[in-house]
Design a protein around this nucleic acid. Structure first.
Lengths: 340, 340
DNA sequence: CCTCCCAGGTTTTGCGTTAAACCTTGAAGC
DNA sequence: GCTTCAAGGTTTAACGCAAAACCTGGGAGG
């Protein structure tokens, strides 16, 4: 037999469908205890499961929150093999679920196609990870849904934002290296656009160097992409940079690659080079030596994102801009200079 | 103004809603070229987006495929920080999308609650990763949807299956170590239930040992969980196992932990111990030394899963059981014994 | 000339659910 | 004894879409 509907329950419990709807949705005032009991019994024996399509159609809401992450460049795949996104999503999903919402995950590539497809399912809200072309934000505005941008510096009243103070975090990290007596510190990072996360981190790095009287040398910035492979390649450039004794990587993924590259070149860490990461991904414990890094509590950040969106949807008002704290996690990849 | 519906298009193009529906869904035979053009123009200018809830309600299908993965044990979070699941999902999603289906990701914990919730949205099919209690499979059968189990040895005509030949793969891996002149090889693995993936791998390991005349010593099996932490802890047990020179780990995650643990104990790899992994996760290149491991093309496996489900939903008939091939990837964590 | 068919539509109906308006009965208030 | 009200319902309509049945006005076949 087909899936039981509210009508079947109504028939079985000898009430009208509307009463069943009321009871199922917790509007108990509208039914006597005895009726509630009869309905609940019927729900159980008939194995009733609500039909979200119908609910969503009539209520024009879905209890689904769309989560957008980038695709990989070459192929059209979710950038989920980047543990940064994986951990974040894990956090988002758990907080959404705890609040009775469901997550719908979607990648987006070059055009707006995937976002459009996503919008066919009446999303209640959106959470956006990553940085995209302006056209995408334009479309997001058109959709006119509550939208939370994570790690974005796009300043637009249509969007909520969640991030860290990247400038301050990079400043702290660089100061930490300076405190370990490093005076020639390279910065290994992804592609530098304008007005994004990476630029803020570069700013913080500069500020720490200048403040310490070391001064900033643009040749010390090695810019590639946020990948393990770029980190591995950057090792050669770092070694070619005679004099450098430490590298601050703006992502653990890059740092992991840098470690591997340095090993291949026969350099020891932290004896020959100190390496610092950013993110505190789970892989930062797995590499050798374990990475000293800047923790930005990715899981917690994801959970906060989920809670923020839930709050917004419940009409509890949420701050337009939220920040999570960072902290330096000391492990084994950074050494004190001059104490060998 | 509210989102445009099929009626609005009909009005604008001066045809009936049904004709719009026909055109939008590619039943072109039912409209003249000129009408099609008018409708398409209206669709564009009004920014029409189909309402999947309505479609799903009337067609009793959703073009959504539910993908089920385990939760973490302690907290209720998607086991997405395990790169195995992350990579697999990435593959599944891309293949589903290429075939016009959408993925809905859900974790499942102790009960059937999350699966039930998932079922509220008319899924067209399910893909299940991981191993669960019988009650879960019971519920899966009740849902009576096309269901694909990945890496499962549950033999039930209600389910499709996709996996690797675990016994043969473990046999190969062990033989590889034997070929490198290792004669005392430990097996580091997750929890041993019955009739699952791990048991098959243990069987393959045994067969290789016995066939080589080495014989099987149960004390060489170190069983914990499929986690980095267990691998790190297993290092102590491995070292205590006097005589062992190699370890075959049934997961890269465990192998990564084992490497870290051995480093902490001051052992060199591969000079003191050879370590072999399983999966060829992206992290296997990141650890030090890079892991020699058994590749099971997780991404490709995920894609195959997506294609299989699409085929089933298109009524193309698909094999009930599918297997992907494995191959040994030689990197730096296994050494030839006796050639120092 | 009549029938039949076919291209190109239209009308009707119903999917499962809920908001809104409506009905009924009995008891309380005056 | 009449009104008012509340508790506990019921009825109706609508959400957006598509399957199925139904029109309509040629033209071809006989």
């Amino acid at each position: 037999m087909a899936r039981a509907t509210i009508k079947d329950i109504a028939l079985a419990a000898n009430v009208s469908p509307m009463t069943v709807s009321n009871v199922i949705n917790g509007r108990r005032a509208k039914a006597s205890d005895e009726t509630v009991e009869r309905i609940m019994a019927a729900v159980k024996t008939l194995g009733y499961r609500p039909n979200m399509s119908a609910r969503s159609l009539v209520s024009n809401a879905s209890r689904m929150v769309g989560v957008i992450i980038p695709f990989t460049e070459n192929q059209n795949q979710l950038l989920l093999d980047n543990p940064f996104y994986a951990e974040m999503i894990s956090g988002i999903e758990s907080a959404l679920r705890a609040n009775g919402y469901y997550m719908m995950l979607s990648g987006v590539g070059e055009g707006n196609a995937q976002l459009d497809t996503l919008s066919h399912w009446n999303m209640d809200a959106l959470i956006v990870l990553g940085v995209y072309r302006e056209a995408l934000y334009q479309r997001l505005r058109e959709l006119a849904l509550p939208t939370l941008l994570i790690d974005s510096y796009i300043d637009d009243p249509s969007f909520y934002r969640l991030g860290v103070d990247d400038e301050a975090a990079a400043y702290q990290a660089t100061r930490y290296l300076i405190g370990k007596c490093h005076a020639d510190i390279a910065l290994v990072t992804g592609v530098i656009r304008t007005d994004g996360v990476i630029e803020r981190r570069v700013d913080g790095y500069k500020r720490a160097l200048i403040e310490a009287g070391i001064g900033f040398d643009p040749s010390r910035i090695l810019s590639g992409s946020v990948t393990f492979d770029w980190g591995a390649k950057a090792a050669e450039q770092l070694v070619a940079l005679r004099g450098a004794t430490a590298a601050f990587c703006t992502a653990d993924l890059i740092a992991a690659g840098l470690l591997a590259g340095l090993h291949r070149l026969g350099r020891r860490i932290p004896e020959d080079y100190s390496v610092m990461g950013f993110d505190n991904l789970s892989i930062s414990r797995m590499v050798y030596p374990a990475l000293t890094t800047v923790d930005q509590s990715i899981l917690g950040k994801g959970q906060l994102a989920g809670r923020l969106i839930s709050a917004i949807l419940n009409k509890t008002d949420a701050p337009r801009d939220s920040f999570v704290d960072v902290a330096i996690v000391e492990r084994d990849s950074v050494g004190q200079r001059g104490t060998r």
